[in-house]
Design a protein around this nucleic acid. Sequence first.
DNA 1: TTAGGCATGTAAAGTGTTACATGATTTG
DNA 2: CAAATCATGTAACACTTTACATGCCTAA
Lengths: 189, 189
Amino acid sequence: MDVKTLCLGLLSVREACGYDLKKTFETSFKHFFPAGYGSIYPALADLAAKGLVECEEIPQVGKPDRKVYRITEAGEKAFVSALNSTEPQHKLRSEFLAMIYFADLVDDNRLMEVLDDHVEQLRETVRYIEHQERHSTKSAGASFVAGFGAVVARAAAEYIESHRHMLTDKVAIKASGEELADCKWAANS
Amino acid sequence: MDVKTLCLGLLSVREACGYDLKKTFETSFKHFFPAGYGSIYPALADLAAKGLVECEEIPQVGKPDRKVYRITEAGEKAFVSALNSTEPQHKLRSEFLAMIYFADLVDDNRLMEVLDDHVEQLRETVRYIEHQERHSTKSAGASFVAGFGAVVARAAAEYIESHRHMLTDKVAIKASGEELADCKWAANS
DNA sequence: TTAGGCATGTAAAGTGTTACATGATTTG
DNA sequence: CAAATCATGTAACACTTTACATGCCTAA
């Protein structure tokens, strides 16, 4: 299932232009399926060429014409069939975790910064999703997916906060192997 | 940070051939950074061409010569510099969640199957990581990353199990809108 | 005897990312 | 006055995936 198929799916919910779809990818799909204009516009052109969507150009002043896409019957069928035939993948590609894997080669200050940034990003995701949920009505699927994102992001943030000492305390160990007793976490564990 | 950089990183830990690296990607990196032979072998050739690794060919009978790669000093430097210069991304691309988003268009039996499969996959990930952790000693970074994977997978599995009724109970609602009181979850909420 | 492990790679196709190019209107 | 929003797209590049090609050894 690629960006093209997802655009088709979004158009099965309501008509939209490329710009609108991009916003949906940036909001509802942000935490699990990123896509940029570079994928979306060619996808729409392709769908139109295959007759799966139709396009109406609405003239505007001072802006390019707004091209509103509407799904066709063939498009609906194609989408349902795509949904039911694909074995759904679920792939994480995390440079963040890769970097952490090699934490002993990373500058300590940078490491802490990266950890802080990532936690903040996760917290922001949680806040954002929960705000969204409160202010819009969604399909069961959309709510489930949003909830999933929030729960997973929260779990990730909590893990990082409660285990980061595994990575950052090497500083204390390196600097003063004899003074381990001074480390607060060592006293607690 | 691409597959090439990660190969270099792995070679900074110990020498290995392409086949060995693939196994590491399949085990330690499985849950956060997939890579196949098609990325790994060209990456190694490239690293060697740039002088970041050296290759020793060890003759074998009945198999292609084993090409053992060792990192060079230039390679170590390049890796540390790559680690410290990249803004680490963390991208999920989930066809699974995309499919769930459009759950109302998915065949009910298939939906349940997909849900079951995904939970089982997550549970398997957790089991695998925990087994690994018990039977091998790892760097702080590697342990942190493994723990992260386990915690997040567990949270995901639990979310799916405790919220799947949001998706599957539409059957009951569709079939008998009047009998909502019979739904156990409806009584609790 | 068959499946899986060991071991190498290439080539083409598919997909996505990034940078570029344009420009009026609205909001702070 | 600057920044964000609306609105379109293309072209080059990067990277990964998939399928292909080969073949012995070992354990169940």
